Simulated scan of single mutants.
Amino acid sequence: MVLGLLRHRRSHSAQGAAPALSVPLPPGAGAFGCEVLDALGQPLGGAEVTVTGQNSHRVATRGTTDPYGYFVAALPPGAYSVMTMAESLSPVRETVEITAGVVLPPQRIVLEPGRQLELPPSGTWLFDPPHTAIRFIAKHVGMAHVHGRFTRFEGGIRVAQNMADSQVQVRIDASSLTTGNQTRDNHLRSGDFLDVEHYPYIDFTSTRFAYRGGSKWTLHGTLTLHGTSRSVGLDTEYLGTVNGGYEQELRCAALAKAELHREDFTLDYRSMLARGIAVVGPTVQLELDVQAMYRTPDTPTPPN
């Protein structure tokens, strides 16, 4: 079982040498650590580290580096892939082999500035509903996953000259929810869940774009659902720009994902479960597969 983050200790070795690790190992476990630096050799606190089993392809543990750029974990024996990411820097993937009773020397990982991709022209882009999908996946209590989507929505992107200043707005008709089961859909639209009579729309308004390297961004914003607004971050992959469609319009595409917790939006999972009415679990995976059409180059130019 993964123990998560453990402490680290600097040794009194020669200056510039990697520090030794002091890790209390449970029986049968091994450990590894990494020191994450930027291109200037400065520690990167808050970098995201995700450790995935190479055979299972499942996340074994994830976390962030401490203020000194360190991350340490104890793991069962086996081969692992370690992905390290930080905002505006190119991610790095390493592999480690964990052996029972062995604490590996910490790896030094240097994150270089990310290569900026060619972004869409500044201006207004509108979602193309026939080529856009808003999907969700929720765990069916005690059974398989429930897959659903919203069929009515509108949205757009105002791309600024500085992409970080761009804006996204999405409005979803909550009553357009469908999971392929009419009884379940009616229940999800009812007052027990979305309560579409009183809260007919689900709205997202972005606050900023944060570059994560390569084609990755985090889209920060406010999601309003069931009358409650919460800050969320959408993990977004930019898929490029093409000329296509019936009128050969200029189009761009992106895929955005987020995990939502029902209780954050006053959808009390435990209360519903106690009353025997919860048909989906406490978390929902939301996915926006977006294709947008270029409409007008009217994004305001910021003053110098």
Rank of each mutant, 00 (worst) to 15 (best):
V159R: 11
G244K: 03
T99R: 15
M163I: 06
G142A: 11
R152Y: 13
F153E: 00
L239W: 15
E263S: 07
V290E: 00
E112Q: 15
P19Q: 05
R189C: 13
T64V: 09
T299L: 09
H8T: 04
H198F: 05
L273Y: 05
S88Q: 07
V141S: 09
A79N: 04
L225R: 01
Q285N: 07
E249W: 11
M293R: 13
T65N: 06
D235A: 05
L5H: 12
L239Y: 10
P302Q: 10
R262Y: 08
L40C: 12
G63V: 06
A174T: 07
F32T: 07
S88W: 05
S190K: 05
Q15V: 15
V23P: 09
T124Q: 14
I134D: 00
A18Y: 08
R149P: 03
A79F: 00
F136L: 10
S56T: 14
S215Q: 04
T299H: 12
T266W: 06
S11A: 11
P26F: 06
Q182S: 13
H187A: 12
L37Y: 11
P302R: 10
G214W: 09
Q15M: 14
R208K: 14
G148W: 12
T95Q: 14
N186Q: 07
M85T: 11
V59P: 06
V92R: 11
A17Q: 11
P27E: 01
L255R: 15
R149A: 15
F32G: 08
D235V: 05
A133Y: 05
I277H: 12
E247R: 13
G148T: 02
E263F: 08
L250G: 00
V72S: 04
N55F: 06
F153C: 03
V146D: 00
L117S: 03
S13W: 06
G101M: 04
G214S: 05
L234T: 01
M163P: 08
H147D: 03
E197V: 15
V110W: 07
E118K: 12
M1P: 12
T124P: 02
F265W: 13
Y238I: 10
L126N: 01
V72F: 04
P43E: 04
R62H: 11
P24A: 04
G46R: 08
R295P: 02
A210F: 00
A39L: 05
H187V: 02
N304A: 15
H226I: 11
G213F: 03
L119C: 06
E87S: 11
L21S: 12
T61L: 09
G245V: 13
H261Q: 13
A138V: 04
G191C: 14
A100K: 01
